[in-house]
């Protein structure tokens, strides 16, 4: 949105400017968090506790079975770790912002952001950073490293890069889906409950893809709401047990389509935005 600029900025300048804006936003987020230090630590405890619960569940199941649909214990732990990692990186950057979007629309405070000389989607998406989520993501990395060692897995540099790239696609899937949902709040306020129940869907990401028997459930969560791919594809690629070699391509393609869809929905929604309250 080049509202305030007289001459079109070169893309390098634009990027530098966005980076500077982002730096400021991050600084603000840190200052905000540090105002409530006890709360910050307690939320870390809550997240760690819930992560530990998921791992306990897996440990308890494997007391009674050797495999779940060809997946061994530490393979599933790696999957749960990957799922948590992706979810936390998504939370660090986007979760609060997506939740806040419906609030911005409801109260009409979006007006203020629309007037600023910065791309509005950029502002809306990156306004608040959640630094605690990086600590939680680190705990997930710890669990993944532990699981990889138990599996005697020593990934090379390009394998790790590929894994991170697929995780990035997973983060994009979460972000685009959630943003898509949030844009619905331009038309109805009912959507806030869908957003608040979105985390229910994370459960699907933690379950080995092969455990889902073919059917509508699997189809929906592979192609429409690709929760079943988000963590499964990076984890299975790393462990070397992809059931189809085209799964990584599918994840990247689906992520790209969701990004495009969310951008389209966002543009339409903003066009029909009639400020509230003023």
């Amino acid at each position: 949105m080049p509202a305030a600029s007289k001459a079109p900025l070169r893309s390098a300048d634009r990027f530098r400017r966005l980076a500077r804006v982002y730096g400021m936003l991050c600084r603000n987020s840190f200052i905000r968090e540090m105002n409530f230090k006890v709360n910050f630590v307690l939320w870390l405890v809550v997240e760690l506790l819930w992560f530990a619960l998921q791992l306990t569940f897996i440990a308890v199941i494997y007391q009674h079975t050797e495999r779940i649909a060809t997946w061994s214990k530490y393979e599933v732990i790696l999957l749960v770790g990957a799922s948590h990692f992706i979810q936390q990186i998504f939370s660090a950057f986007f979760l609060n912002n997506c939740v806040n979007l419906s609030e911005l629309v409801r109260t009409g405070r979006l007006d203020f952001l629309l007037l600023l000389p910065v791309n509005t989607r950029f502002l809306v998406s990156f306004k608040q950073l959640d630094p605690g989520a990086f600590i939680n993501a680190a705990s997930a990395v710890g669990v993944m490293v532990y699981a990889a060692r138990q599996l005697a897995l020593v990934p090379g540099l390009h394998e790790i890069l590929g894994f991170l790239l697929l995780c990035g696609a997973g983060v994009l899937v979460h972000y685009s889906l959630m943003f898509l949902l949030a844009t619905v709040s331009f038309y109805t306020v009912r959507v806030s409950v869908i957003i608040s129940t979105y985390y229910h869907l994370f459960t699907v990401a933690r379950i080995p893809l092969d455990a889902f028997s073919p059917g509508p459930f699997k189809a929906v969560f592979t192609y429409a709401i690709p929760m079943a791919l988000v963590a499964n594809v990076p984890a299975a690629t790393l462990v070397g047990k992809l059931s189809h070699p085209w799964y990584p391509l599918l994840l990247v393609a689906v992520a790209g389509m969701l990004v495009a869809a969310s951008e389209w929905a966002w543009r339409r929604a903003v066009r029909s935005y009639t400020s509230a309250s003023s």
Partner: peptide, 8 residues
Amino acid sequence: LWRAVFAS
């Protein structure tokens, strides 16, 4: 998940 456990 449990179905897969029983199937295994």
